Amino acid sequence: MTSSLWLHNDHLSVEVRPDKGADITSITERATGIDILFRTPWGRSDLADAPVTGDSRTDWLARYGGGWQQLVPNAGDERTVDGARLGYHGEAAIVPWSVIDADDSRIQLATDLITAPLRLTRTLRLDGPALNVRDTVHNTADQPVPVMWVQHPGFGAPFIDEHCIITTPARTVLTDAEQPGNLLPPDTSAAFPLVTTADGATVDLRHVPGPSSGRSVFACLTDFDAGWFTIDSPTAGFGIRLAWDTTPFPHAWLWQECHASPGFPWFRRAYVVAIEPANVLPGGPSPGCPTRGRAPLLPADSSWTSDIVLSITDLP
């Protein structure tokens, strides 16, 4: 199994790991040499061979080196579906994928899951300063299957810092019911971007918190007029734009971890901002949102396809 494949052009270098979830582990803007993706404190080359503890959350996180994963068929805590125990954040990001085709500008990969009757394919292609990612989830069974599907790109320093600005046409932010972080109250809905904090102040979620802020946030952006966001980084001298079709992904999970959380896995060592296109609201049903965690059904012998474009942009 190939440990890393690379896409290269004059604008971008992209690392992909077929041996571990077809993860995108690095996206480097070549003019500056800046990798825009987050890397965990333990980021290392042998992630696919991390020790197994038997706890799916611990095991998934031990294999998480940062970067961009797909969460399929589960996202979030373990749950039982159709008689199978689906592990934390699902199977797709921890299993090896087969390489169908690869050159400097295009990579195609595929895998078949065990915990759900799904065949996944992923095609990555460079086009100037843009990375095009096409993902397909196909139900190989003769019955419908509930499938959670979340794209999981995390962005980190030196691209991310307290000078960054997030722009998106999402109209609503819904905080997590059980783990909203230390800034926002749980299980509340507010108009994006100005939201009320747990202590009654107002915060503008367009402004990225700095590494010394001690902030943690877990919420969900929804009610998109169109599927996209930008992050402009004056420090890096460029921005990024991630665009997607809201038909497969009507929501986007929002995660910020700024040296805030003690204990495993971060021990206050992580600085990451993530906006994650998703087909499901995070968590389980709650008083404020009874539809949380309700996975859509993928019909028998049918497919969902997602096209996502991540592009490097000039600052406004």
Rank of each mutant, 00 (worst) to 15 (best):
T2Q: 15
L7R: 05
E15P: 01
P18I: 13
I27V: 15
I27G: 03
A31R: 15
W42G: 10
A50F: 06
S56H: 08
Q69K: 15
R79L: 08
D82Y: 05
G83C: 13
E91D: 01
I94E: 04
D101P: 01
A102G: 07
R106G: 00
Q108A: 10
D112W: 09
A116L: 05
P117C: 07
P129S: 09
D135R: 03
V137F: 05
H138C: 06
T140C: 07
G156Q: 09
G156A: 08
A157N: 05
F159C: 00
C164P: 04
C164A: 10
A170G: 05
A177T: 08
Q179N: 08
N182R: 02
L184A: 13
P185T: 00
F192W: 14
L194N: 09
V195A: 14
H207Q: 15
P209N: 06
G214R: 01
A219T: 10
W228G: 03
I231N: 03
I231Q: 05
A236W: 07
F249A: 10
H251Q: 01
H251E: 00
A260Y: 07
P262C: 10
R268P: 04
V273T: 13
E276P: 09
N279K: 06
P287A: 15
G288Y: 07
C289P: 02
T291V: 12
R292C: 02
S311Q: 14
P316Q: 14
